[in-house]
């Protein structure tokens, strides 16, 4: 498992989710802290492409051996892709939470929602 890290180019939600925003689309995942707290990820229940994600609300679940967590949407939008690789290799969420362990891609409903998210610095401060 990699060392703790919180890349500067991402935006963070206090429920330990990240968003990589690119215009009106974004990629979501869970932070290093979240995957560490969860432990070894064993199952990701992918939402359906086309489903709606609402900011601050759960859009799916992620499971470790002995815990289930709701995954909270940092921003609102429509899911345009899910990370199919997690079906075979859910451990990617642990091994590479900001890269190969991404969860979904979303077409944002309201890009201005990003204003309420935290910078890496602010998120790390919150973790303290």
């Amino acid at each position: 498992m990699p060392d703790p890290s919180y890349p500067d180019d991402l935006l963070y939600h206090p429920e330990h989710d990240w968003a990589r925003v690119d215009g009106d689309t974004a990629t979501f995942g869970i932070t290093w802290y979240a995957q560490d707290a969860l432990g070894e990820v064993v199952f990701f229940d992918p939402p359906k492409v086309g489903a709606k994600a609402s900011k601050d609300e759960a859009y799916t679940e992620i499971e470790s051996v002995k815990a289930v967590s709701d995954v909270i949407a940092p921003l609102s939008g429509e899911i345009t892709a899910v990370n199919d690789a997690l079906a075979e290799n859910p451990e990617l969420v642990n091994d590479d939470p900001y890269g190969a362990g991404w969860l979904v891609q979303v077409r944002l409903a309201d890009p201005s929602e990003t204003q309420s998210l935290l910078s890496a610095e602010a998120y790390e401060a919150m973790l303290e």
Binding site: V42, F43, E63, S64, V65, K66, A67, V68
Partner: peptide, 11 residues
Amino acid sequence: QTREQHIRREK
């Protein structure tokens, strides 16, 4: 085990 009551509780 995440299906079960001791982990998923009300769900």
